[in-house]
């Protein structure tokens, strides 16, 4: 595709710069606002930087239970990510390599689980959790988030495993590897891009979820960030300046996970998305 004319090249870059601005703009505006004092956030005057201050951050970090919620969220999201990767990888591999009875129906169930609105599941899951004595604990959230993340991730990983030639499995089995060893030593390392996407997706699912968190946690030492932040949004007179600072702090960990995963996003999702 070489030999693009100059005009076309300018048009291409202009479009992409514009699109990037739209993509980044809202985030940037929130970041800029988070460094302004309250009166500047509340004013209608447009300023990019006005009396920069860290007061909003100081308030959010030291005057609220933010650090505690942050820790809760990190625990919940990391556990969801690790367990989610493990379960979806084994399931995806089985779906991809073995033609066992129940395979097709399991694939169907995975698709159908995506259709369930939270409102139908939340009450029965709540009663199961309370039977198990898990209400107001972090594991209840991890388990609930796994039910959201694993079906999609297993589906995606199955597609990716499909794109890895089965001759590799056969070679490994000739070398005396059992199916679990083959999976663990040969296939899993090759699937790194897809694993990265899976991890990213599970982490984000757990990091940003509100409905289950509001139902299953009751005391404010167990809140996750997503739910705890609702405290800044009272019905009237929202504390926008604190909200902006909190939003930035919440987004940073997700952004870090994103930076690790983004290199793999395209190749990881490729095969996964194509072969449903």
């Amino acid at each position: 595709m070489a030999g693009r004319t100059k005009g076309k090249s300018i048009a291409l870059h202009t479009t992409l710069i514009l699109a990037s601005l739209i993509a980044v703009g809202p985030i940037l505006w929130v970041v800029l606002s988070s460094f302004k004092p309250g009166y500047a956030v509340q004013s209608t005057e447009i300023t990019l930087i006005k009396d920069p201050t860290l007061a909003n951050y100081r308030y959010v970090l030291f005057e609220t239970r933010f650090p505690e919620w942050f820790l809760n969220s990190v625990i919940v999201a990391s556990l969801t990510m690790l367990i989610g990767i493990f379960f979806s990888a084994t399931t995806g591999y089985a779906l991809s390599r073995f033609n066992f009875p129940g395979r097709r129906s399991l694939m169907m169930v995975f698709l159908v689980t995506q259709m369930f609105p939270v409102s139908i599941l939340i009450v029965p899951i709540y009663s199961i959790m309370s039977t198990l004595g898990l209400i107001n604990t972090l594991p209840s959230l991890v388990i609930a988030y796994l039910t959201i993340a694993v079906p999609f991730c297993a589906w995606m990983l199955k597609g990716y495993f499909d794109s890895i030639p089965t001759s590799l499995d056969e070679a490994a089995s000739l070398d005396g590897c059992g199916p679990f060893r083959t999976f663990w030593r040969v296939i899993l390392p090759l699937a790194r891009p897809a694993i990265a996407v899976t991890g990213f997706y599970s982490f984000l699912t757990a990091w940003g979820e509100v409905a289950y968190a509001s139902a299953f946690t009751q005391t404010d030492d167990k809140f996750t960030l997503a739910y705890g932040l609702q405290q800044f949004v009272p019905q009237f007179n929202a504390q926008w300046e604190y909200l902006t600072a909190a939003a930035v702090l919440v987004t940073i960990p997700a952004g870090i996970v994103f930076l690790f995963a983004q290199k793999h996003l395209v190749s990881g999702l490729t095969a996964g998305g194509t072969k449903g």
Binding site: F87, S88, T90, T91, Y93, A94, L95, R97, F98, F100, P101, G102, R103, L106, V109, T113, F116, I120, L121, V123, P124, I125, I128, I143, A144, L146, T147, V150, P151, A154, P179, F180, F183
Partner: peptide
């Protein structure tokens, strides 16, 4: 098929307990 089933059984169990049962209950 036991290897395949062993690999999917945790997920199937979780889904059965936390999605299919709640669905039926719902």
């Amino acid at each position: 098929h036991w290897t395949a089933w062993a690999m999917v059984v945790p997920v199937v169990l979780i889904l059965a307990v936390l999605i299919l049962y709640p669905l039926a209950n719902g």
